[in-house]
Design a protein around this nucleic acid. Structure first.
Length: 225
DNA sequence: TCATTAAATTGTT
DNA sequence: AACAATTTAATGA
């Protein structure tokens, strides 16, 4: 609790590379907004005019298909930015971003984003790396598409919370409730609870109150049931 | 520091 | 979806 926009920016590789003046402009241009648990941070179809960063909390990026099927693309948390794809293409938003718990987000205007893009080398490299991470993530997702076994999907859902580029989990203690894991993975809380039991028996993690302790990250990634 | 209470989370049906 | 049990956090003596 108590994370600030300044800390988020200075904690990122591109933010560290900013001059005082550049940092001042970024912090001055970017506004903050709070969202309650369950609130829509943005909706599919909206015009995209901000780069969105999570200052505090947990969001899920998901989409409901025309046939009504819910697909969750990713969970994003403190320090993660998203929306750059649609900003660059000037297209409408392609997914919803929903707060899973009370959250605070940063909204960087398009003009500021474009200015960084035009002037800052570290920012460009960061974006390039981010696109690369996303590409790897979706390639892996396609590869596992047929893997419908809930235990394995919950395992991968948890493992996906560990990616240094997105500043997600830094310790082996993942502070996330089983209900939130359920929203992220698309299963019922009961099924998640059952899956966690299986993964705990396999020695991959330890279930605690309000958190999951990751004991074997690679084991979670490789888990097939 | 301890006891009490409310809220959140979990385990189970 | 509902319920009881457990854990945490907040409060005040």
């Amino acid at each position: 609790m108590g994370t600030t926009l300044r800390e988020i920016v200075l904690g990122s590789v591109w933010g560290k590379a900013l001059t005082e003046a550049e940092l001042a402009r970024v912090l001055g241009d970017t506004r903050e907004r709070d969202f309650p648990a369950g609130g829509y941070v943005c909706r599919e179809g909206d015009a995209v005019d901000h780069w969105v960063g999570v200052i505090e909390g947990l969001l899920k990026l998901s989409r409901v298909s025309e046939s009504g099927k819910l697909t969750t693309f990713a969970g994003v948390s403190t320090g993660t930015w998203f929306s750059e794809g649609s900003l660059l293409k000037t297209e409408r938003r392609r997914y919803d971003a929903i707060a899973l718990r009370d959250s605070r987000v940063a909204l960087m205007p398009r003009a500021t984003f474009n200015w960084l893009l035009d002037s800052n080398f570290a920012f460009n490299r960061f974006l390039l790396q981010q696109f690369n991470e996303r590409l790897s993530y979706f390639i892996a997702m396609v590869g596992h598409e047929r893997m419908l076994e809930p235990d394995a999907r919950v395992a991968r859902c948890l493992a996906s919370m560990y990616n240094p580029h997105f500043n997600l989990a830094t310790s082996d203690r993942l502070r996330i409730s089983q209900e939130e894991i359920a929203y992220l993975s698309g299963f019922s809380r009961q099924r998640v609870n059952q899956a966690l039991g299986v993964l705990e028996s396999a020695g991959l993690l330890k279930v605690d109150y309000g958190e999951v302790r990751i004991l074997d990250l690679q084991g979670l990634r490789d888990f097939l049931g």
